[in-house]
Structures are given as structure tokens and as C-alpha cells.
Design a protein around this nucleic acid. Structure first.
Length: 575
RNA sequence: GCGCCCAUAGUUCAAUGGAUAGAAUAGCGGCCUCCGAAGCCGUAGAUACAGGUUCGACUCCUGUUGGGCGCACCA
């Protein structure tokens, strides 16, 4: 049992107990907790229980609220409660309590949230590009959203295993092999290896459509590979090595790290066993030469687990992967981050896993497709935008901005800053909206650096850092931790309330697999801070007020930095 | 045909069934003699349509329209 990290949790626990005891509700399942208010005239937290209980108690909501307020004894951290509107009970925290809370947050910004996942392990499967194909803008969502979830769960104390489930096995390798031998260009292979591999594949694929013998050759080379032929095996390994090397340069730029790069091939040996157990349990049946699992009674179409040519497919590999992960890691949860097109596939193989008795909590986090304004992009259409090109463009646009606004910086500093800003802008664009919405890619949107964007947050952070430095230069002898925080001004209180809700925002973002909840929170926080910054003096305030406000600044800076870090967005002290 | 997802200011996005639907951008009007104007302050502008459930609906249910995606050997 952990300490309650947030006022919301503490207060909810209290209202739930108090409601039950005041009205004698022993086994009542309705929600009696509180939620944050969205307007400070209604206090800091509101409870809707009086309205919810009106029917079962056969009393008017306001009467219930009145009885509750008259009877229940307030916990010490709440200043007062009030009845409002149809029967809301509003709770007000005192400025003193808020100030103490901010002080506590400064000492321990996690405030207990790292206890949430203590002792629990979770596997997160994300990014997962295909070998021998350059990453394009369609890969950015899985990578960036998956990585944010990864960071959030680590922050909550989970033991996270980030696994990049590469597409490194499949029928395309037959075409790749013979294409490589026939069409490769050594020069391009050195300068842009993966792009060249893709070109080889496309050329080989096109040839196979017109040339039957070519297709036959591909098939036989594939069989040789699968049977462990040394030469083909070496070539295949080379494709993987070249691909991973190139993926890693992108991951480095994005600040993404994996614990494992286990491609589909890793699970190859386990496929026959999975089929055996499906058959043993009577789950699989022959149909039109293929082996299928009938899911009709579960309201789903059939699922092929072995093709009529005897080969295995995606579903088989995924089942073997689950089994392997359970045996090796015993995770509390396995999270898959992919696009929405795979929803049916995941539902099917989750169901089959369950039927097989594979005991794991499987979660499919899906996100909306990325499209181009004209149409869906595809390799064959040739309208893909390479991920590397997107990152280059972001950094160069950011560099332009940095050069004009910070000409005094060294070239090296400018480039470092442009990287933080450019990459941050791209990530933030994806992370600040609901993952499930369908996204139409535009350069303008992806590289947004104004308004609700990463640079806005980074700018707020840099301004605070600068204020903080100035304070230390002017008052080197002051020990801030000995100065108290006093909340008097409205905007100070607003800022303090927002700061106190950071742990709740983090927990909510993680629980809902929605980094945009955290992004929203941070943007709100930065807006409140900017308003604070513009409207009240701090360096120029009188002694006492000055130190208190500087501490609020520092707390804001810590929170912004921590929050942005959880989204994988870098901060700099100078912009 | 069956199934999944989506529809909110001109545009791009928010809103665990809660109180007056929030931002950004574009528009209009202000603010650098003052802690960093990548900023701040003000102004105007929206829940596709029709029913229903509820004390209360952008949110849940039904239907309609308009988009995206998936449904037997690609992953």
C-alpha cells in the first residue's frame, strides 16, 4: 500500500468512507470520490455523490449534501466545504496546505508515484519497423507514443522491458536475396544501405510479377534460408545488421532506447509447438488446406494460424511471442503499440491466447493512421516521406530560428539547441493530441513551433532558469529552502494548484496510455506560469515575497523539466 | 454484407456523465525606458442531423448523413 500521492486520492478516499458512514451504505459500488474542479470559484475539488445518491436514498440531492456537510468531520488538509448548484459539495484547500504541498513536491517530485508499479514488470512492444525498409513518417507515432508510455511506466516504478519487435522474417526475404545478388549497387549500399535494400526489393518484386521463374527462384531461396543454408543465412543477417544500424541513428536522434531487439525470427523455433498445443486443446481445425481457429462464438472471423502451404503467419508468431515473454519475464502486463488497422488481429490473438491458457494481461494501444493530405501513402505509390528527412527538416528550421534569435551563441550551441527544439516540436505534435485520432500529415503541423508547441514549453523553462540564475547572482547568500512559500496573489494560487496536480496528471496519462494528458497539463502549467511571469514581479518584489515567488518558479521549472522528460522532450537552460 | 473508429470555432486540437464547451492558429485592438516579446492582455467565433436515457449529455443508446479502416493464407 502506497502513500496517497495526490489530494484527489486522499480526498476521494475520505469522501467515500464518510459518505458510507453518514448514510449507512455498506456495500455501495457507485463512485463517491472527488474530481478536480474546472473553475476555481467552485473550490479545488468537487464531489457529486449527493446527486448520485439521490435515487437510492430517496432524498433530494441538496438535502443529502446538507446532511453530509453537517455530520462529517473535515480532514485536516481541507479548509472548508460548501454546497453549490444542484448538490455539488465543493472542497477548498487552504493556501497554507498548498504551500506545504509544493514544498514537499520540491523535495520529492515523484511524491510517492514511483510506488505505483513497484515490483511489477511490464513489456512494451513498440516501433517495430520492418528490416530492409527505411522508416517513414508512418513509424513516428508508434515510436514516439510508445516511448512516452515506456518512460511514464518507468517513472511509476514499473520494471519496463522495451522490446522492438522487428519485422525480420517473412516471404519478402526470398525476393530480397535474389534481388540483392542481381541488382545491388555497391556504391548506394555504402551511402544509404537501407534505401538501397528497399530499392532492390521493389525491383525484385516488380520482376516477380512478370517472371514466373523469378518467383520460383525466390521461393526456393526462401526455403533454403528457412532450412538454415549458411550463405543465405549470412546475407539475411547482413540485411538485419544494416537495418538496425540505420534505425539506431534515428532512435538516437529521437532519444529512444530499447532493451531488446527481438524480431519475429527469434520465435521461429517455437511456432510448431504453438500449433501443437492449439491442436491438442481442440482449438484448431483444417479448412481449405489451412489450419484455422474458429472464433465465431466470440463474434470474430476465423483466424489462420498455418497457411495452406504449411507456412506460419503473424498470428502464430504473436502467440509464440506471448508465450515466450510470459515464460521468460513473467510480466504483469504486455502492451502493444500499433496503428488502428491491427485491432481485429489483436482481438483475435488475445482471445486465442486466453483459450490457450496463456495467463497475461494483454493490452493493445492503438493509434490513428497517419495520412497525407492527398491519400494514404505507401511505398508502392512512392509518396512516402522518410523519417530521417522529417527530422532533418525540423532541425534545420529550428536552426534558422535559433540563429536569428540567439546570434551570440556558438555554432555548436546553436546546433545543439536546434536539435532539442526541432525534435521536441515533432514529438510534441504527436504527443499533444489524442493518439486515436486520424492524423493528416502536413509539414506545417508537424513542425509547429508557435503557440501550443514544444518550443513554447522549452521557452518557458529557459526563462525560469534565467530568472533563477539572476536571483542567485544578486542574492548569493540566500538559502531558499529556509524561506517559506506564501501564497497570496490569485495567480500564485493558480500556479500552486496546478503544480499540486502533476502526480495526478502523470498517473492518468499512464493509466490511459494517453501521453496527451500530460502534454495538456504541461501546456496549461506553462501558460499559467507565463501569465504569472508577466503580471507579478519577483526579482523586483520585496524581500520575503521575492523568495517565495522564486521558489514557485523553481518548482515550476522542476515540474516542466520532469514532465517534458517523460514525453522524451529535451530542455535547455538557455534558448 | 458484417465489424471497428471518427465528425467540436475559418483551420488544427482539448474537455474520467457534472456547473459558463477550453486552447492554438488565422482576424481585430493593445503591451518592450520595466525579471527574456519564441511572450502577455483584450475582442470575436463551434458540439454534422433526428430521436432517446439521465437531476444533468460533446460524452451513453438508436437511426440518418459524411469520412477512415478491417474482415482466409501480407505483417
Amino acid at each position: 500500500m502506497r502513500e496517497f500521492a495526490t489530494f484527489e486520492e486522499r480526498l476521494s478516499a475520505w469522501t467515500t468512507d464518510a459518505m458510507k458512514s453518514v448514510f449507512g451504505l455498506e456495500d455501495c459500488n457507485v463512485h463517491l470520490g472527488v474530481s478536480p474542479t474546472n473553475n476555481d470559484k467552485f473550490g479545488d475539488y468537487q464531489c457529486n455523490a449527493a446527486m448520485v445518491l439521490a435515487k437510492p436514498l430517496r432524498k433530494a440531492p441538496r438535502q443529502i449534501a446538507q446532511e453530509f456537510v453537517d455530520t462529517a468531520e473535515l480532514p485536516e488538509f481541507v479548509e472548508k466545504m460548501e454546497i453549490a448548484g444542484p448538490g455539488f459539495i465543493n472542497f477548498f484547500l487552504s493556501n497554507k496546505v498548498l504551500a506545504n504541498h509544493i514544498e514537499a513536491l520540491e523535495k520529492d517530485p515523484n511524491l510517492g508515484v514511483e510506488q505505483v508499479g513497484k515490483g511489477k514488470r511490464v513489456v512494451i512492444d513498440y516501433s517495430s519497423p520492418n528490416v530492409a525498409k527505411p522508416m517513414h513518417i508512418g513509424h513516428i507515432r508508434s515510436t514516439v507514443i510508445g516511448n512516452a508510455i515506456d518512460r511514464l511506466y518507468r517513472f511509476l516504478g514499473y520494471d519496463v522491458i522495451a522490446d522492438n519487435h522487428l519485422g525480420d522474417w517473412g516471404t519478402q526475404f526470398g525476393l530480397m536475396m535474389i534481388g540483392y545478388r542481381a541488382f545491388r549497387d555497391e556504391e548506394s549500399l555504402k551511402t544509404a544501405p537501407v534505401e538501397e535494400l528497399e530499392r532492390i526489393y521493389v525491383e525484385s518484386y516488380n520482376k516477380s510479377k512478370e517472371d514466373d521463374s523469378w518467383r520460383e527462384l525466390a521461393k526456393s531461396e526462401l526455403v533454403k534460408l528457412q532450412q538454415g543454408d549458411e550463405e543465405n543465412r549470412a546475407l539475411w543477417e547482413k540485411f538485419i545488421e544494416l537495418s538496425i544500424e540505420e534505425f539506431n541513428t534515428i532512435y538516437d536522434r529521437l532519444g529512444v532506447k530499447f532493451d531488446l531487439y527481438r524480431g519475429e525470427s527469434f520465435y521461429n523455433d517455437r511456432l510448431p509447438k504453438i500449433i501443437d498445443s492449439l491442436i491438442d486443446k481442440g482449438l484448431a481445425a483444417e479448412s481449405e488446406g489451412a489450419l484455422i481457429v474458429d472464433l465465431e462464438e466470440d463474434g470474430m472471423p476465423i483466424c489462420i494460424v498455418r497457411k495452406s502451404d504449411g507456412g506460419y503467419n503473424y498470428a502464430t508468431t504473436d502467440l509464440a511471442t506471448v508465450e515466450s515473454r510470459i515464460n521468460e519475464f513473467d510480466p504483469e502486463r504486455i502492451i502493444y503499440v500499433t496503428d488502428e488497422r491491427q485491432q481485429l488481429h489483436f482481438k483475435q490473438f488475445f482471445k486465442i491466447s486466453e483459450k490457450l491458457g496463456l495467463d497475461a494481461n494483454l493490452v493493445h494501444v492503438w493509434f490513428g493512421l497517419m495520412r497525407l493530405p492527398e491519400a494514404t501513402f505507401s511505398t508502392r505509390e512512392g509518396n512516402v516521406i522518410k523519417l530521417a528527412a522529417l527530422l532533418d527538416e525540423a532541425e534545420s528550421r529550428a536552426l534558422e530560428m535559433v540563429r536569428s534569435s540567439s546570434p551570440e551563441m556558438s555554432e555548436e550551441q546553436q546546433k545543439d539547441l536546434a536539435k532539442a527544439i526541432g525534435i521536441g516540436a515533432i514529438k510534441y505534435t504527436d504527443l499533444s493530441q489524442n493518439p486515436q485520432s486520424l492524423v493528416t500529415f502536413t509539414w506545417e503541423k508537424a513542425l509547429n513551433m508557435q503557440g501550443n508547441s514544444a518550443p513554447y514549453l522549452q521557452y518557458a523553462y529557459a526563462r525560469i532558469s534565467s530568472v533563477y540564475d539572476k536571483f542567485h547572482k544578486e542574492y548569493p547568500e540566500v538559502d531558499l529552502s529556509k524561506c517559506s512559500i506564501n501564497i497570496e496573489h490569485d495567480i500564485e494560487r493558480k500556479l500552486a494548484v496546478k503544480l499540486s496536480r502533476f502526480p495526478a496528471a502523470v498517473c492518468s496519462a499512464a493509466e490511459n496510455y494517453s501521453p496527451n494528458i500530460l502534454a495538456d497539463y504541461l501546456y496549461d502549467l506553462a501558460q499559467i506560469y507565463s501569465s504569472f511571469y508577466q503580471n507579478v514581479p519577483f526579482l523586483k518584489a520585496e524581500e520575503g515575497v521575492r523568495e517565495s515567488r522564486i521558489r514557485l518558479c523553481r518548482s515550476t521549472a522542476t515540474t516542466l523539466k520532469q514532465g517534458l522528460d517523460l514525453l522524451g522532450i529535451e530542455t535547455r537552460e538557455r534558448i
